[in-house]
Nucleic acid binder design. Structure first.
Lengths: 188, 188
DNA sequence: CCGATGATGACACGCCGTGTCATGACGGTA
DNA sequence: TACCGTCATGACACGGCGTGTCATCATCGG
C-alpha cells in the first residue's frame, strides 16, 4: 500500500475550493486547507507558489499553448484571423457549457483584492505569450503588443458580458460583436 | 517644536526608493525603511496599505481625476476624442520630460513579480475609472469597457516604446501612431 | 484652561512563505 | 533477497508582513 494517498495536488485544490466557498478566501488559512486534504502546510507550497495560485493552476499551461498556436499558424494568415480563431477555440473548449462553474470561480476571485491582482497577472501572461508568438512569426513588435493586449481585452470583456446574460448567447458571437463595437469606436 | 518631524509620508517614500535602488525590493524590509525615515514599522502601514504601495502612492488620485474628466467632457464630444485628449494631457503632464525617472521606476518594478502585479492593478483601476466615466455620460456599458481597456493598452504600449527609444520622439506622437497601427490591424 | 483630535509609539500576534534535514515507499539492479 | 538511488512528503525553525490595540502627547478650538 502506498505511503501517501495519491493525487495530493488535486486534493489540495478541492479542499481549497471548498473552504474558500464556505468561509471566504481571506478567512481560510493554508494549514486549514492542508488539514482537510490530509497533508502538511509545507507540502501545499511545494505544489503552489502561494495561497492564491491554487485557484489558477488549471490554466497554467494556456499561455505556452497559445504562443505555439500563434507562432505556428499557417503562413499568410492575417494576425486578426489568428486571434479570432484562437478566441473561438478558447471559447468553445474552456468556457461554453461551464458558465455556472466560471461564475462561481469569478465570485470567489471578486471577493479578494489579491486574487483580482493575480487574475490580472494571468491575463498579462496570456497577452505576453500571444505577443511573443506574433513576434516569432516576424510581426512588428509594437503591432504584436497592441494586438495581444487587445485580444485579451476582447476576451475578458466578452466573457463578462456572457456571464451577465441569462440567455444562451454563444460566447464567440459576443466576441465578434465586441470586435465590431471596438472597431466602430476607434474609427469614430 | 513639533513632536515629530514633518512629512512622514514623504520621508518614507524617499527612504523606500533609496533602499529599493540600493539593495532591491525583496531584500528591503519595512523595518529598514522606517529606520532610515526615523519612524516605526507600524507607522509605515498607516501611510501605505502594504510594502508595494509605497511605489504607487503618487498616482493614487489619477483614476478619480480621469473619471471626472471623462464624465464632464463637453456633450457631443466623441468617446475617442475624449480618450485622445486625456492621453495627451497625461503624456504632457506626467511623462514628457521625466523619461529617466520613469525608466528607473520601471526598472525597480520589473525586478519583482509582486510589483508587476500591483502595476497591473493600477492600470486596471485606471481602466475601470475611465469605463465608469463613460457610463456616467450614457455610453453603452460594453463599449465603455472596451474603450477604457483599449485606452490603457494604448498608453502602456506607447510608453514602453517611448522608453525604449533614444531619440526625443514625443510620447503623444507615439500614441497616435499606435492608434493608427491598432486600427489597421483590427480592420485587416 | 480644557477637552477633542489625530498622528505616532509600543507591543503582541497570526499567518505566509522558505530553508533544511529526516523519513520511507518505490523501482531498478545484482 | 539484498542493496541503492530517487522523490514526494513530514517535521521544524524562522524571518517578514500586516493588523489589532492601547498609550502618549502635540495641536487646536472653545
Amino acid at each position: 500500500m502506498a505511503r501517501w494517498q495519491p493525487d495530493a495536488r488535486e486534493r489540495l485544490q478541492q479542499a481549497a475550493l471548498e473552504l474558500f466557498a464556505e468561509q471566504g478566501f481571506a478567512a481560510t488559512t493554508v494549514p486549514a486547507i492542508t488539514e482537510r486534504a490530509g497533508l502538511t502546510t509545507r507540502t501545499f507550497f511545494r505544489h503552489f507558489a502561494d495561497k492564491r495560485e491554487v485557484l489558477f493552476a488549471d490554466e497554467a499551461e494556456l499561455p505556452a499553448y497559445a504562443e505555439q498556436l500563434v507562432a505556428q499558424a499557417p503562413a499568410g494568415t492575417s494576425p486578426l484571423a489568428i486571434i479570432l480563431e484562437g478566441l473561438r477555440g478558447l471559447a468553445e473548449t474552456r468556457f461554453e457549457g461551464r458558465r455556472d462553474t466560471i461564475r462561481q470561480w469569478r465570485a470567489i476571485v471578486a471577493t479578494d483584492a489579491g486574487l483580482r491582482e493575480r487574475e490580472l497577472q494571468k491575463r498579462a501572461a496570456m497577452a505576453a505569450a500571444v505577443r511573443d508568438g506574433f513576434r516569432a512569426r516576424g510581426l512588428d513588435p509594437t503591432r504584436a503588443a497592441l494586438l495581444a493586449e487587445t485580444s485579451t481585452t476582447l476576451m475578458y470583456v466578452s466573457v463578462t458580458v456572457w456571464l451577465e446574460t441569462d440567455d444562451d448567447r454563444k460566447l464567440y458571437d459576443i466576441i465578434e460583436t465586441a470586435l465590431a463595437t471596438l472597431r466602430a469606436t476607434l474609427d469614430a
